[in-house]
Design a protein around this nucleic acid. Structure first.
Length: 650
RNA sequence: GCUCCUGUAGCUCAGAGGUAGAGCACUCCCUUGGUAAGGGAGAGGUCGUCGGUUCAAUUCCGACCAGGAGCUCCA
């Protein structure tokens, strides 16, 4: 057989040759430096037989980052071995350690274990030490193909491995990888030798994980590790995590007194403190302004409804487990609403509509209650009471595309103000195989999906398709915004719905006097107030733009005799609609500046003798780089400037 | 909901089987200072809740509640 090298050169090799054989044929030195290879573009290791005619490119220890998935996976095996040694030292037998799966993941790997006694995070440093020891032993990874029977024999003590082996396709060879005295069932590929593995790794955490991800299965202990080709990359990653901690909305929410949850009020039921409420109010005013400009009509509807409403809508069948339990009283059964759409449908249905009135756009900052599992609750981003920037567009079938495009344009308009520059469109489609989740009507789905594709093509936006992510009633467009830390978060959604109008028997009178069925578009632009606020906190690290900043201006008198002047300016700013305070404390001015910085107040106005005399202020304001100072600015000018920023939402 | 971890003053955290401590914040006094901490004094805690072990529990054990890391779920 032969293989082809990157420069086009062909090498002749005996059948069953490996990448290591190739490296040896080129030079012994290369054989010593190689850590992995790609064959026809796929990562492979040095121990796996190559296929005839493969295009082979060797990866050396100089650029091991190209083989990150490999060394992460191999480190997983090393960790697995280390955990075995750890428990052996405690007096347990090897057959008491059972192992689930252990794949490489983004930035690292994890490995699941069933252990004779639980592992604590305090044990991680010792396991890490054992790992470094194993790396130091320069153990060779060897690959072996065996029969199923033989494999089952090797893992006789381990029911998880046995289950995996039995799940492998009949007739396919089972591969085992061994380093030192440790053997694992593994498809590979792996590094050739533990000694060539990077040492820039760290064990991060332990957690529980169900065997095969099914909550009816036993729970295993999982250890997560991260690994990089270089120490620098590892440090960068750890710094990123630190930065994420600093920006965590739960931490900043507490520090800046934005919100809290109370044991007595209940988990997942956040309380908005005055500063957090200010941010929310600004967001709400903003989105309502935009919606009114775009022809939406705002309504209010109650958070409770008869359960009948949800039985008609179908939520009862599809969503009940996420709803709070039913309340029985007198002859009624009431539920807390988990969605606003059925209410808005009732608003549509309360009087007949002409085709001339459509599209009808009903909007509401609707508060909803969902029973999220307790382990799922997180700060403001996963809660049980939430207020959605919700709207439902009732339109004629011929208006679908125009309306859908209008929603996308509105999303773009809103993102510009919020400063979201990096976002992507995901067209979420049904999985036709999943008859359980999706309403069954092939034609409905085909039409709906085609309409959305066409509208997107018209808008000229890039998007990707994601089967299996649609709502039960129809396909949707999700918009995912990239946060400052590079994480994608679904912020906006627009969903096409032919089903609910049918369930509620909605109609309009067409031009020819006939009764026709309208189509609904469910859309949310700035998500729930809770989630958007959490996102903005993390995205800005608490440094909100001026218009959103809960505390916009801090006046800092240099000495007590300037308090009165400062107070006069504050009153003027507040009268103009801005949020301003005076720091009349007995601290020195330096301390007041520091204090205002820590509170992340964007504008400080410092006033002393000079300013008072000139009816001026000294401005210290936040800039992306840090801060800038302007001295002797006429107060009237400054007020106009701040007002302009506020009104134009900057 | 599940596994593991955590729960001490408003916040961040230290602490020991013999009924508690620091820094910041807070209050008061001195200081009236020009762009990230001036000095001093004081007040503040049922050590998450309920049980158990013990002469003695905030410390050990259990249950519960809440939070965290994950898993699972997610219209």
């Amino acid at each position: 057989m032969h293989i082809i090298l990157p420069d086009g050169k062909q090498l002749d090799l005996p059948q069953g040759a490996t990448a290591l054989d190739v490296a040896r044929q080129i030079s012994e030195r290369l054989a010593g430096d190689a850590v992995a290879a790609t064959a026809n573009g796929e990562l492979t290791d040095l121990m796996t037989p190559l296929s005839d005619g493969a295009r082979l490119s060797l990866i050396t220890k100089k650029n091991p980052g190209d083989a990150a998935a490999l060394f992460r996976h191999s480190l997983g095996h090393v960790m697995s071995q280390a955990v075995g040694e750890f428990y052996r030292a405690k007096g347990y037998g090897d057959d008491q350690i059972k192992r689930g799966v252990g794949p490489a993941i983004e930035n690292g790997w994890y490995q699941d274990f069933d252990l004779p006694e639980p592992l604590s995070e305090d044990d991680l440093p010792e396991i890490e030490r054992l790992m470094r020891d194993i790396i130091g032993r320069k153990l060779e990874f060897s690959r072996r193909e065996v029969s199923r029977a033989e494999a089952l024999d090797v893992f006789a003590h381990d029911p998880y491995k046995a289950e995996l082996i039995e799940g492998l396709p009949e007739g396919e060879a089972v591969t085992l990888y061994t380093q030192g005295d440790y053997t694992d069932l593994c498809r590979g590929p792996h590094f050739p030798n533990t000694g060539r593995l990077p040492t820039a790794f760290k064990l991060m955490s332990t957690s529980g994980a169900y065997w095969r991800g099914n909550e009816n299965n036993p729970i295993l202990q999982r250890i997560y590790g991260v690994a990089f080709a270089t120490q620098k990359e590892l440090e960068d990653y750890l710094n990123l995590l630190e930065e994420a901690k600093r920006r965590d909305h739960r931490r900043l929410g507490k520090e800046l007194e934005l919100f809290f949850t109370s044991d007595v009020i209940g988990p997942g039921l956040p309380i908005w403190l005055p500063s957090g409420a200010t941010i929310r109010r600004e967001l709400e005013r903003f989105i309502v302004d935009v919606e009114l400009k775009n022809g939406y009509q705002h309504v209010y509807s109650p958070a409770l409804a008869k359960s009948e409403l949800y039985k008609i809508s179908g939520h009862w069948d599809h969503y009940q487990e996420d709803m709070f339990p039913i309340m029985y009283l007198d002859q009624e059964e009431l539920v807390l609403r988990p969605m606003n759409c059925p209410h808005h449908i009732q608003i549509y249905a309360h009087k007949p509509h002409s085709y001339r009135e459509l599209p009808l756009k009903i909007a509401e900052l609707g508060t909803m209650y969902r029973y999220e599992q307790s382990g799922q609750l997180t700060g403001l981003s996963r809660v049980r009471s939430m207020t959605l920037n919700d709207a439902h567009i009732f339109c004629r079938p011929d208006q679908i595309q125009e309306e859908f495009k209008a929603v996308v344009r509105m999303i773009q308009e809103v993102y510009e103000v919020l400063g979201f520059e990096h976002y992507s469109y995901r067209l979420s489609l049904r999985d036709p195989g999943d008859t359980e989740k999706y309403y069954q009507d092939d034609q409905m789905w085909d039409t709906a999906e085609a309409q959305l594709r066409e509208a997107l093509a018209d808008l000229g936006v890039d998007y990707y398709e994601s089967p299996g992510d649609a709502a039960f009633y129809g396909p949707k467009l999700d918009v995912q915004v990239r946060s400052a830390l590079g994480k994608d978060e679904t912020i906006s959604t627009a969903q096409l719905d032919f089903l609910l109008p049918q369930k509620f028997d909605l109609e309009y009178v067409a031009e020819d006097g006939s009764r026709q069925r309208p189509v609904m578009i469910h859309r949310g632009v700035i998500s729930t107030m809770e989630r958007m606020t959490a996102f903005l906190i993390e995205n800005t690290a608490g440094n909100f733009p001026f218009w959103l900043a809960p505390r916009q201006v801090m006046l800092i008198p240099i000495a007590d005799r300037h308090n009165e002047y400062a107070e006069q300016l504050r009153a003027e700013l507040v009268a103009a609609g801005l949020r301003a305070e005076v720091d009349t404390g007995s601290d020195r001015m330096n301390a007041k500046v520091r204090d205002a910085e820590l509170k992340k107040i964007p504008v400080m106005l410092i006033v002393g003798d000079k300013e008072q005399e000139a009816q001026a202020v000294s401005v210290r304001e936040r800039t992306p780089e840090g801060h800038q100072e302007r001295k002797g600015v006429a107060f009237a000018d400054l007020k106009a400037e701040l007002l302009d920023r506020y009104q134009n939402r900057r």
